[in-house]
């Protein structure tokens, strides 16, 4: 499994390279910023509150639908590999599975889950 090992090496090395580049370049000789220089940008006005908040995502129903389809993706990876060997049976089985999910998708569409509520 030299492949996966290599992928891990590349990932770690890439993350560390860019992280180190940021750290090295911003470390030496920087003065501390003053208070007005650190005010978040809002077009010239001063914010009164912290921006971090319990953000109301309007697409929460859609996010649930994503979970259902994402599970389906997990099954599809092995399915794709054995598909040609298993033939028509595999096609029909996956079609049934997907159709059930699509019913859910159509229902979500009808319930306007893809719009901001």
């Amino acid at each position: 499994m030299v492949g996966i090992g290599a992928a891990l090496v590349v990932f770690v090395a890439a993350v560390l390279t860019v992280g180190a580049a940021q750290w090295v370049w911003s470390a030496p000789g920087e003065r501390d910023l003053t208070v007005p220089e650190r005010v978040p940008f809002a077009g010239g006005a001063e914010p009164e509150f912290h921006a971090w908040n319990r953000f109301h995502i309007r697409y929460y129903a859609m996010a649930l639908l994503f979970l259902a389809f994402d599970m389906e993706m997990v099954f599809m990876y092995p399915w794709a590999v054995v598909f040609v060997r298993e033939g028509l049976l595999a096609l029909i089985e996956m079609l049934m599975f997907i159709l059930i999910l699509v019913v859910g998708m159509v229902y979500a569409w009808r319930e306007k889950s893809f719009e901001w509520s």
């Binding site: 809002a42 006005a45 001063e46 009164e48 509150f49 921006a51």
Partner: peptide, 22 residues
């Protein structure tokens, strides 16, 4: 700076409101 305001609960879900001038 204070944390954002609490919006009136809706479906027992408590969410924040952020007043900001842009």
């Amino acid at each position: 700076r204070p944390l954002p305001l609490r919006a009136p609960a809706r479906d027992t879900l408590e969410l924040d409101q952020l007043p900001i001038t842009i």
